[in-house]
Nucleic acid binder design. Structure first.
Length: 452
RNA sequence: GGCCCGGUGGCAGAGUGGUUAUGCAGCGGUUUGCAAAACCGUGUACAUCGGUUCAAUUCCGGUCCGGGCCUCCA
């Protein structure tokens, strides 16, 4: 099936064509590890997880690289503020990041390179840019000369003139052009520093992605993804560095950008302080519900986060789980061609997850009416979104746990009372269980239970 | 100042030049000893003003409103 993706570079939806059908290569910008991620940071992680899943279903080999930025002013500042070492801060933050992403059921990328372990590649790339005349050294800095690149600004759709007109570009005395950006800069005393031909210092923000993408994916690769706020300057500058260093027409063929998570219509951001960390959200909601909530609007549209929305999503998820449990639908329809065509068509159309979810709900409805095929499709399709995998969704305990056994005993007692038409006793048992959050579901086949 | 998005029923949210999704909530019903779950029924919404058209929520233009980027940001 054709996969269509909206390409920021062309501002159009395009049919995805791999550069090499035997190996698709994808890069996404990962976290700067100075603090916990928030829901806004989680959106691209979840959305591009679905993208990669789709690609893996179609192509024999996919390499998905998502970097970790571990050299940054914010990291230095935070470590100093907390009185801990930069390493400790990074290790701690990365551990939390893994916890959060696991809870959101995000698959690990194939490669997760750290910036500090690729300084040599960055220095080499900066050297190439200087040799080719695209960069210059000045006062311990190395800067990229935007004027040397003919079509700088293509991704973000702005011309150099426009940017100058914006007049918000930092002007530094060592810059030839106000729009030139840093490739290498001196480090302050006591902060991380590496030797380089231009003096001790550290890399600029953008060069790490260019260097690591080239290292693991080659000079040109298929897809580069990230949040809307990275288009300019980050991705624009990555493109400049990579194309000029490698003499290529493209860095990536397709550039994908997710929309913002908003709160009451405003962008969720650290600086505005209107954020909910994933860890906080997880203390109130299940990870899978948060994941589905994030997928319940189209990835390019704004997603307004609220407690109510996640609660609502949990209700939907409960319904899907109930339907999936029908007919004991455990086996999977594995071949992509046999999967529900409408579901796959929705996902293939620029990852239309809300429409795909609608289809899941329709399948659930058919399953409830007795279609085993629909139940199997439901479980199999949900796999593409990494949903409905939790065997204990309605049970916090394993089936043979003490609590489960105790509940089963209560149910047996209630059913005995019902058989004896002692409804007062039966209702009392049910109410007692309900008070513990345990819901009984009577059916012709017997009584099952759910814990909420 | 420059540039870019978007405005769909109570809420969420797709989509389309004409047959006006879907879900949640609500209401009515079926089922159930009672509940729960499930099922059935029930809502002509597409900011506004013009234009194009036989026909526009969908195309074009203006207006209003909201959001964003131009500085760290997913």
């Amino acid at each position: 099936m054709e996969l269509k993706l909206y390409n920021t570079l062309t501002r159009k939806k395009e049919v995805f064509k791999a550069l090499d059908d035997s190996h698709v290569r994808v890069y996404a910008c990962g976290p700067t590890v100075y603090d916990k991620i928030h829901i806004g940071n989680a959106r691209p992680l979840v959305v591009f997880d679905v993208l990669v899943t789709m690609l893996r279903a179609t192509y024999p080999k996919v390499t998905y690289v998502r970097n970790i930025t571990d050299v940054d002013d914010k990291i230095n500042a935070r470590a100093a503020e907390r009185g801990i070492s930069i390493n400790t801060l990074c290790d701690e933050t990365i551990a939390q990041f893994r916890k959060d992403t696991n809870a959101l059921l995000v698959n690990a990328p194939d490669k997760e390179p750290r910036a500090t372990r690729h300084i040599a590649q960055m220095i080499a790339m900066i050297g190439q840019l200087i040799d080719k005349g695209f960069a210059y050294a000045a006062e311990g800095h190395v800067l990229f000369s935007v004027a040397k690149m003919g079509d700088y600004g293509k991704l973000s759709g702005r011309s150099l003139d426009e940017m100058i007109a914006g007049a918000r570009v930092e002007v530094a005395p060592y810059k030839r052009d106000a729009a030139d950006f840093v490739l290498w800069k001196p480090s302050e005393e006591g902060l991380p520093s590496w030797d380089s031909p231009w003096g001790a210092g550290r890399p600029g923000w953008h060069i790490e992605c260019s260097a690591m993408a080239a290292e693991y994916l080659g000079k040109e690769f298929d897809i580069h993804a990230g949040g809307l706020d990275l288009i300019f300057p980050h991705h624009e500058n990555e493109i400049a560095q990579s194309r000029c260093a490698h003499d290529t027409a493209h860095m990536a063929r397709y550039w994908l950008h997710n929309g913002y998570v908003t709160v009451d219509g405003e962008k969720m951001s650290k600086s505005l302080g209107n954020f909910t960390t994933v860890a906080e959200a997880l203390s109130a909601h299940r990870g899978e519900a948060i994941r589905l909530a994030l997928l319940s609007s189209h990835y390019r549209a704004p997603f307004d986060f609220s407690e109510q929305l996640v609660k609502n999503t949990q209700i939907i998820l409960d319904k899907l789980y109930r339907a999936a449990a029908l007919n004991n639908a455990k086996e999977l329809i594995s071949e992509a061609e046999q999967l529900d065509a409408e579901f796959m068509a929705a996902l293939s159309d620029d990852l239309n997850t809300p429409l795909a979810l609608t289809r899941l709900q329709a399948l659930a409805s058919e399953a409830n009416k007795g279609s085993r095929e629909a139940a199997l499709q439901l479980v199999s399709c949900a796999k593409h979104l990494n949903l409905l995998n939790d065997k204990n969704w309605f049970r916090s305990e394993d089936e043979d746990s003490l609590e489960s056994k105790e509940i089963e005993a209560q149910i047996a007692a209630r059913n005995a009372a019902r058989a004896a038409r002692d409804f007062a006793q039966a209702d009392e048992i049910r109410d007692r269980l309900a008070a513990r959050g345990i819901r009984l579901l009577d059916s012709p086949d017997g009584t099952s239970w759910e814990k909420s």
